[in-house]
């Protein structure tokens, strides 16, 4: 791109670059601080720093409620990831392949849920699920999380399908493959990176969701709900320790997704280089 030729004023360029750095500093300050203070001894964190300490990690590790929360989060996250990805794949394929009356409504249902404020979703879910005796259990959180996670899976997989040569599927049919065989041998292999990408991203979204989970989980609290509890009660740097730990898990998932989505996308990505 030849944008260099357009603007030449160095002072403006450098102050804009400095502004980028400032913006990123604002966004990453709380993330970095949480990591630093998770390893710091002070009960009421500030600067100058106290000494290096693992006590908050130890406090967290010896709290059975935290382990229970982590267990719930992991189980729920994996199940949510799998269901959301399956539903999202189906919806993405439907959008890719079919035109039908009411498709706009279908797509709205498939994509809109994340734009509804979580607090309203939480209330609606709590009221509805307790009506059908499904509230206060792990399955309540799973049901609610799939609603907001499936759209992400659908968007990711749809993006991959849009890179597929539209002639590929009809070519397989012409060669005698059934629709099911084409799905299995052409479509699924082609979208595989996106399928796993969607799986990891939806798991990560579920790991961090606290508001809806807070409303519907009852006693089966997930880890983020536990953190909310810490914030409400005995605020302590344990939050930082949990936050850092969850951050590492989430980032591992996101980076795995990123590698899958960009690493082996084949000719389409390479063409752009």
């Amino acid at each position: 791109m030849s944008s260099e030729a357009i603007n030449r004023n160095r002072a403006v360029d450098w102050s804009l670059r400095a502004y980028i750095v400032l913006s990123y500093a604002f966004v990453f300050a709380p993330i970095a601080a949480s990591f630093v203070f998770s390893l710091n001894s002070d009960r009421f964190p500030s600067i100058p720093l106290g000494h290096f300490s693992l006590e908050w990690y130890q406090a967290v590790a010896s709290d059975p409620l935290v382990w229970q929360g982590l267990g719930n989060t992991l189980v729920i996250g994996v199940i949510v990831g799998v269901i959301s990805t399956l539903l999202g794949f189906g919806a993405a394929y439907t959008d890719y392949r079919y035109n039908f009356f009411g498709k706009q409504v279908y797509l709205a249902l498939a994509l809109l849920p994340p734009t509804i404020p979580v607090i309203i979703m939480g209330l609606a879910m709590l009221a509805f699920l307790s009506r059908i005796d499904l509230s206060g259990r792990a399955i309540s959180v799973i049901i609610a999380h799939v609603v907001i996670c499936a759209p992400f899976a659908m968007a990711i997989i749809r993006l991959r399908l849009s890179q597929m040569d539209p002639a590929l599927e009809p070519a397989a049919w012409n060669l005698g493959a059934s629709e099911w065989a084409t799905m299995r041998h052409v479509i699924v292999p082609f979208t595989k990176p996106a399928i796993f990408g969607a799986l990891f991203i939806t798991m990560a979204v579920s790991f961090d969701e606290f508001a809806i989970a807070w409303f519907v989980s009852g006693l089966n609290e997930t880890l983020p709900v536990k953190v909310l509890g810490f914030l409400q009660g005995q605020v302590s740097p344990r939050i930082n320790a949990i936050g850092t730990f969850v951050f590492v898990i989430s980032m591992t998932l996101v980076i795995l997704a990123q590698v899958l989505l960009s690493g082996r996308t084949g000719p389409t990505a390479a063409d752009k280089e």
Partner: peptide, 24 residues
């Protein structure tokens, strides 16, 4: 880099701001 914040806990970041903004 701008995508990373979406996968960090919002609660933890808010608690972190308490550390920045409190009286001490």
């Amino acid at each position: 880099l701008m995508v990373i914040p979406f996968f960090t806990s919002y609660l933890v970041r808010v608690y972190s701001w308490q550390i920045f903004l409190s009286d001490a």
